[in-house]
């Protein structure tokens, strides 16, 4: 992938597991965002979701990654995992914040955009090995018709 070329220090690891899940991770820096959104759109297209779904998902993942990269420690990883089912897809993206206690804004225009683009969106936080992480999870359903 092109992203790897632009930062040789970071390996981009994609692995496809048994339950139609794909995850990808790399340093939480702006260059990773186009790669992740393109992966999201590609997965959605290959799963044969309709064109509105595909481009909404692409924009939503772009928005999520941009929001998280902004508050992320750029030397830590951004992790993103997608789950695919017959009529929905989910994405969960998380980063380690630069400043502890940093929050994702859920009152701004960006959040409004996310709410319009997907069916469910929520913020999550947690600790792993004593390191705090912040994440956004979204679910988009294929409307019937």
């Amino acid at each position: 992938m092109r992203a790897v070329e632009s930062d040789h220090q970071t390996a981009l690891v994609a692995d496809v597991d048994r339950v139609r899940g794909v995850s990808v991770q790399g340093l939480a820096q702006p260059w990773i965002v186009p790669t992740v959104r393109t992966l999201a759109a590609d997965l959605a297209a290959r799963a044969d979701f309709d064109l509105d779904f595909i481009s909404d998902l692409r924009m939503a993942v772009d928005e999520v990654c941009a929001a998280l990269v902004r508050l992320a420690d750029p030397d830590k990883r951004l992790r993103c995992s997608f789950q695919l089912a017959a009529d929905w897809m989910s994405a969960e993206v998380s980063v380690v914040p630069r400043e502890s206690g940093a929050q994702v804004s859920t009152t701004g225009f960006g959040w409004r955009v996310l709410q319009s683009l997907v069916d469910e969106v929520s913020v999550s936080t947690g600790d792993e090995d004593a390191t705090q992480w912040v994440g956004i999870r979204l679910v988009k359903k294929q409307s019937s018709g």
Binding site: A45, R46, D48, F49, D50, L51, D52, F53, I54
Partner: peptide, 27 residues
């Protein structure tokens, strides 16, 4: 025709090309 956005497979069928080609074209 459908009253919604088409799926890549539907576009492929209409154009008589493979789904892979549709993905390429979209990209």
């Amino acid at each position: 025709q459908l009253g919604r956005a088409p799926r890549p497979s539907e576009i492929a069928a209409k154009l008589g090309i493979s789904a892979e080609e549709v993905l390429e074209g979209l990209e």
